Every structure is written in structure tokens, then in C-alpha cells.
Amino acid sequence: MSHISHLKSDNTMNAIKETHFNFEGQTAFYKGKVRDVYTIKDKYLVMVVSDRISAFDVVLPEPIPYKGQVLNQIAAKFLKATSDIVPNWVINIPDPSVTIGRICEPFKVEMVIRGYLAGHAAREYAAGKRTLCGVTLPEGLKENDKLPEPIITPTTKAAIGHDEDISREDILAKGIVSKQDYEQLEAYTRALFARGTEIAAAQGLILVDTKYEFGKVDGTIYLIDEIHTPDSSRYFYSEGYEERQQHGEQQKQLSKEFVRRWLIENGFQGKDGQTVPEMTPEKVESISERYIELYERITGEKFVKPEGDNVLNRVEGAIKSALATL
């Protein structure tokens, strides 16, 4: 026993770096940057949200304990809190790091919605562009200003490389999504963003921008993937927002921006020839603590660390039990 308790203090012991499971009825396996996805009987998806962390399109060498659980549980909470607006893909959440759901045929666009001029939109605006994805923006905006009303700036889903901005007109002209479906996606996107904004406000947060992905099965549109997590959304703290805008100061963000900043300060932006700075156990632990803090702030709930030493055995067992009931 002493061997195990000694190992437990090692950060990576309770982190999911990768999985190599083999389930009954498994027909495919896909390893994404952060998620390991198992296809069962070509009908169900088992999504294991690993503790891998990516920045600048690069997966960093060390996993971050509990990061996957944070993302999976935030998404689970918000999918449940919006299921009256649009049905979603989730069937079961058998483990804090796992979601099992139905396979949908994904639409080839991601629905990005912005309530504020931040991130990519702010960079485009600063470069002189006043039309973003076919939407015209007013003159005189500063970075992080609230927009007159939320705007939808879709992107194409690239199989390789970066997603590209696209306008509603192009989506319809190219037949990427039918007019009827696209209008429904827009309506869902606005309603989800309004609900997300409400939930965030109750936690003293501003939902700045986010993205939603949708799919279709048997003629029904479902919300798929994660929603309102710090990896898919940007949040500001409400307190002090106005003062910071007036003084031209950076907004206080709740996102994984802190990881990107640490990398940039240490000379890494994913470019050729650059190396990831050393991820010491202390650094890994501090990132893990920040993710737990994100969870508690966004959900208003206490984060619960699961029992047990061997996280992979726990996850595999939970999935097998859940699959037996499908």
C-alpha cells in the first residue's frame, strides 16, 4: 500500500493523459487535442474529456489534473440548464470526466456569438474591418465594449488547419446548411446565449462570446459538444467592468487566457523552433487550481474531487456499466 500512497502525491497519477480502452461494440476511436472519443455500434459516442491541455494549437507535455472533469461538468450543467431551449446529444454522464451521447451528423459550421468586441473580433476591428461575417459594426468601438446587440459570426469547421470566418449569405449560397435549418440554428444560438448571459450574471460574470455546435439525427436538430466552458467561451468579471473600460484597462477574464499569457511570457506561441517552457509540478498544480477556481466561479458549486487512486480504472468501469444499460 505504501507504494500507492507515495504515487498518489504525484500529480500525473490522478490525471488522464490518454486512454486506450476497448469496449464491447466499439466501431471507431478518435483522439482529439483534448478528448478521446469512442464510437459504439455506430450509434453512440463515449467522450472522455482528458486532462490534456492545448494552447496555440499545441498539446502541452503535461496533463492538468481535474481539468477534464472541470470542462465535462460545466458542460453537463449548462446542457441540462438549456435542454428546454434545444434538445442535446447527452444520454448519460457516468463519470465526472465522461459523457455518453447519441451520434449526430454535425453541421459544417460553428455558431459563434459575440456580445462584446473582444478577441478575434477586436483584432479584426483594430485592423480597420467594419464588417465581420457579413455583419456591419458601428464606428467608435473600443476593445471589450458591449456591442449594440449580440452578433452571430459563424466559422466553417475545418478538418485540418484553422476554422475560417464565413457569412450567413455564403453559408446559404454554398448550400452548407439549408435556409430552414440555418434560421433554426440562429434562433437557438440567440436563445442559448441569452440563457448563458443570465446564468453568468447571477455569478457576477459577463458571458462575452461563445460558440455552439449543432448536429442532426432523424430530422431533429441537437446541441452537441460542450457549452459555456472556459475553453469554448470568454467571461469577464462584472465587478469593475465599467471602470476598466473607462480607463482603457484590460478586463479581468475568466478563461484559459492565463495559460496563454504564461506561455507568451516564456517565449512560446506555437511557432517553429519554439519550445514549451518547463511545466514543473508546482506550475501544473497552479494551473489545476485555477481550473477548479473557474469551475466554482462559473457554476457557483463546490468542486468535488473523485475518490480512488486509479483514475483510468474508475473511468473504464463507469463506462462499461453505463454501456451495459443502453
Rank of each mutant, 00 (worst) to 15 (best):
Q269C: 09
V217M: 05
E282A: 15
Q246F: 15
P230D: 13
K302H: 13
G248E: 11
S233T: 07
G267D: 06
Y235T: 00
Y241E: 08
G308W: 04
Y237H: 12
E301P: 06
A191T: 12
A201C: 06
S255I: 01
Y295V: 05
Y237W: 12
I224C: 05
I221T: 13
R190Q: 13
E285T: 07
T299Q: 10
E265T: 11
Y188K: 11
R260L: 04
T280S: 15
I199W: 09
V276F: 04
K283I: 08
I287H: 00
R260C: 02
Y235W: 05
Y222D: 00
R190M: 11
L185A: 05
A318K: 09
G219S: 12
Q274I: 14
P306Y: 01
F258Y: 10
V311H: 04
Y188A: 09
F303N: 04
I199M: 14
K252P: 02
V315M: 09
Q274M: 15
D231L: 06
T220Q: 14
V217I: 14
T229D: 03
Q274G: 08
E226P: 05
G270P: 07
T220C: 12
S232V: 05
E278M: 11
F236Y: 11
D181A: 11
E198W: 11
D218Q: 13
Y212P: 01
D231V: 10
L205D: 02
I287Y: 02
A201T: 08
Y222I: 01
K283N: 07
E239W: 09
Y212K: 05
T189I: 04
Y237F: 14
K216G: 06
D181P: 07
R314L: 09
E213P: 03
I298K: 01
E186L: 14
K252I: 08
P277Q: 11
Q184G: 06
A194Y: 00
V311L: 13
